[in-house]
Computed example of a mutant assay.
Amino acid sequence: MKRKSHYPYWFMLPAISVFFVLFIVPTLASLYFSLTIWDPFEARFSGFENYVQFFSEPFLVRGVVNTVGFAIVTCVLKTILGLLLAVLLTSGVWGQGLLRSIVFFPVLVSTIGVGLLFQEMMHPTQGAINVALSWIGINGPGWLTNPSLALFSVALVDVWRGVGLATLIYIAGLATISPDYYEAARIDGATRLQQFWRVTVPLVWPATTTVVMLSLISGLRLFDLVWAMTRGGPGFSSDVLASVIYKQYQSGFWGLSTAGNVILFIMIAVIIAPLTYWFNKREVES
């Protein structure tokens, strides 16, 4: 019997080495330092003290709640709007190529640039949005100064910036659907709406899986847009977990900020892993 050669596995060694050095080692180091009170010169083991403190501070817990809510809202909006825009932009509408470029353009712009732009546009008195509303007799709200609106305003900007990618993924998914399915549905007397629900939605399920996963991960990890627009304010109303971690690091609570990083990693894994399994199972069943 011919002995199986291990020669091909040697080609995996560079990739494994890079993954080990750049992911496994930092992850294990973060786990250790999250259990310590540390600075650049020493680390004192403190057990789970950082985690207890993290969940005992209301503004830190609010960052976790805001993160989950932000990720869910932006994911739902990007998924729905992305699918609807993709259907529109593959229907032969006039100026289809130009409209695709317009929808996708925000994806190419720097997130910090988008944040600074909308920070000016959403100024309560001089911003372009409220000035335009005043022309039609509407007194615009404080988009970024009202604690109940700040995070929602950032979420809308994130959807505006990210829906282009979701649309592009859905356009690619729609291109794989054979016209025969729609022809068969029309022969059976299905309306346009019935064709959408019975043909389009099930057959773009792989694209939906991709959009949902990317949107959720992006929403859970969001930092730059929040920091550029509100810096977590007013107060702590628009803080997300990443901005909370950054603030703790700025304040010198390095062990606490490292614990926040570990919490963020666990939260993403706990949310994404079951969802990935469920989506893949649904895809196989359909």
Rank of each mutant, 00 (worst) to 15 (best):
N139Y: 02
G47L: 08
I24V: 15
D188M: 08
S5Q: 03
L28M: 12
D158R: 12
I16C: 14
L193W: 15
I102N: 08
T258G: 14
V157C: 13
L220A: 06
M1L: 14
E42N: 13
L117C: 05
Y182P: 08
I129T: 01
M213W: 03
L241T: 03
S237T: 05
D239K: 12
P179Q: 13
P8A: 06
V93A: 12
S110G: 08
I268E: 04
P8D: 05
E42R: 12
Y170F: 15
T145F: 04
S101G: 12
W205S: 07
L214R: 11
L220F: 11
I112P: 07
W135V: 13
Y249M: 13
S91K: 10
M121C: 06
D180S: 15
G255H: 08
I169N: 07
L144F: 01
T200D: 01
T79C: 00
L174C: 06
T27E: 04
P8N: 10
L89W: 02
T74D: 01
A184C: 10
R3I: 09
L264W: 01
L77K: 02
V107K: 04
V154G: 12
G173R: 07
P274T: 01
R231V: 02
L89M: 08
F104M: 10
K247V: 01
F236Y: 13
I102S: 05
M213T: 15
S238V: 01
A29S: 10
T191M: 04
L81A: 14
V107Y: 11
L117G: 07
N261P: 02
V244K: 11
I272Q: 06
G233R: 03
L13G: 00
F54G: 07
W135N: 09
E120T: 07
G235N: 03
I177Q: 03
F196N: 09
L77G: 04
I129M: 01
D39M: 12
V226A: 10
V18E: 00
G95T: 14
F104K: 08
I80L: 05
G97W: 05
E49H: 13
Y170N: 06
T79L: 05
V68N: 10
K78M: 04
Q194Y: 00
A86H: 03
D239T: 15
P14Q: 14
Q96G: 09
L149V: 00
F59H: 07
V64A: 07
L77D: 04
E285H: 08
A155W: 00
W10E: 09
V61L: 14
D180V: 12
P14F: 04
L151Y: 02
L28A: 11
M267T: 06
